[in-house]
Design a protein around this nucleic acid. Structure first.
Length: 244
DNA sequence: TAAGTTGTTCGGGG
DNA sequence: CCCCCGAACAACTT
């Protein structure tokens, strides 16, 4: 479930619980005592990339669904819930999620302009962060949450395909204009991801991720683990330029 | 049935 | 002290 656009959808689905009191709470997530939520009122729901932030009066709870996690609203996971919250008007469950208490002000903890789903996104800041890592492969940068918060493997592969850039390109060698183009593709694709995910049509619209053939050249796509992150990259050697 | 998956953190070794 | 790497974690689908 967990790339940025999916978290925006989750935020919408949590709206009915805004302003509601937690009647019961439990869960097996380690390092977090769900019982502390009982009797507290959920004031707001914020997001930062893949983080879902349940805002209570004096603290916030950070939910991160990692790689396999998911959520169940007014239904239950087949197995255990990392966090279960019961409200008068329904229940919220997270499975395989990291749950963490945040007691500091959120503005001190989060770099909002780094969130690819946020109106506060700042392209210039992203460019500056990229330039600070000239030897990094661009595929790794696209998974770096400090630079592209909310981006995951799907957004990485699709944005690189759209920008016609090879995943193993070295940041310091890529012209700034090309970096700007890539960032624009990240933003565009993330909005498309959100739109398609809402109507359950994401997979059919993907052009590179988990595909066998390049839709532009109709030749086989490479499927290789790339970069330090060693995640699957799908790319076309013909139309995605390697800049190194 | 076994493998694959939209991810991150931790600790050890060099 | 920094970087690199593997392990660990968990549920569900095909």
């Amino acid at each position: 479930m967990p790339e940025g656009p999916s978290i925006i959808i989750l935020k919408e689905k949590l709206k009915p619980f805004k302003g509601k009191k937690v009647l019961d709470a439990n869960g097996y997530a380690k390092g977090f005592d769900a019982g502390m939520l009982i009797g507290k009122t959920l004031k707001d729901i914020k997001t930062w990339g893949k983080h879902t932030l349940l805002v209570f009066p004096k603290f916030a709870v950070r939910v991160h669904m990692m790689l396999f996690g998911s959520y169940y609203i007014n239904s239950s996971p087949k197995k255990n819930a990392s966090l279960h919250m019961q409200f008068a008007n329904g229940e919220v469950n997270f499975s395989i999620s990291s749950i963490k208490l945040i007691e500091e002000p959120l503005d001190d903890v989060y770099d909002w302009p780094a969130d690819i789903m946020s109106k506060k996104w700042d392209t210039q800041k992203a460019i500056t962060k990229l330039k600070a890592k000239p030897k990094m492969m661009i595929c790794d940068a696209l998974l770096d949450q400090k630079i592209f918060s909310g981006s995951g493997n799907i957004i990485k592969n699709e944005s690189l395909f759209r920008a016609r850039l090879h995943p193993e390109s070295i940041i310091g060698q890529i012209p700034e204009k090309k970096l700007e183009d890539l960032i624009q593709e990240v933003l565009n694709f993330s909005q498309d991801f959100l739109k398609w995910r809402k109507i359950n049509q994401l997979t059919r619209h993907l052009e590179a991720h988990e595909k066998n053939f390049c839709p532009r050249d109709n030749i086989a796509l490479h499927k290789t683990d790339t970069g330090k992150t060693k995640r699957h990259s799908y790319y076309c050697e013909k139309c995605q330029e390697l800049i190194d």
